[in-house]
Write a protein that binds this DNA or RNA. Structure first.
Lengths: 142, 142
DNA sequence: CTGGATCCCTAACGATACTG
DNA sequence: CAGTATCGTTAGGGATCCAG
């Protein structure tokens, strides 16, 4: 039975297309960072926590669980005390490395350009952007 | 002056690195879709609204404003009645097209793989994922 | 027509404390 | 060590009405 609501032709513009939710896996604040961190190999929970500056245990757990559920990471629990849990990318997760790297490259390369654009925008009139139209991320950096 | 807190070497793992917030421009639910929509040319607000299924006027406005501020889109207001406002990608925004396309490709190609991973995960024991560990997006698709 | 302003509810998230 | 549980705050975001 492959007769669900899914089209043969995925269409990112349709709200009910699976590709939408698939794309949004990486539209999370942390997923790309986890991908980067695990890119070079297996890491334990605490190692990830240290590597990814600013993430809380809650968000790390949450992100890892979601990624595991979506088949991006593998979670291996070693039944010892104290517990050892290792995370690594699955092949599916590794397939994501390159695309996400391109985003990183873009970010690195255009970092100053973006910064300049912001300053320019903020200086020009632009009736003081009301808080509602700023994302948390943007406010953080003020 | 280039002597702000920014390193010569951007480091995505640092919370205070500009590249972090730059990367997160596209970590928004809607930004990638706006990029896709504007990829082929200029569109008006209402056209974007129609093209991007499921977006609200508020989120579209918000997303466009953020993208404008960050130099990704250009907003042109034609002083006519009724008003005409056109949006298009700046060169900076166009530079984002390719990376984001790779994500789209990844999503399209691995769509079923992800779906299968989810089903497999959900069937196996896995003490019923508590709501807290699911993102809104994930809940939506249940 | 465009899109700003409000209202309001919910989900996201950090911080902290706690357990197998 | 690797999380889970809980609490409190705040941002996200839909719906709606309004103005230029």
């Amino acid at each position: 039975m492959v007769t669900n609501k899914q089209q043969q032709q995925p269409d990112i513009f349709r709200a009910d297309c699976l590709s939408r939710s698939t794309l949004q896996l990486i539209a999370s604040e942390w997923t790309p960072l986890v991908v980067f961190a695990l890119e070079e190999g297996t890491l334990r929970f605490s190692q990830l926590l240290k590597r990814i500056d600013g993430i809380s245990t809650k968000m790390l757990t949450q992100t890892l669980r979601a990624m595991e559920r979506n088949g991006l990471v593998q979670r291996v629990v070693h039944p010892v005390v104290p517990p050892v849990v290792e995370y690594s990318l699955t092949p599916l997760g590794q397939a994501l490395v390159e695309p996400v790297h391109m985003l990183q490259s873009w970010a690195y390369e255009h970092l100053e350009e973006v910064a300049r654009a912001r300053m320019a925008y903020d200086q020009v009139d632009h009736p003081p952007i009301q808080e509602e139209t700023m994302t948390r991320v943007q406010q953080r950096e003020q």
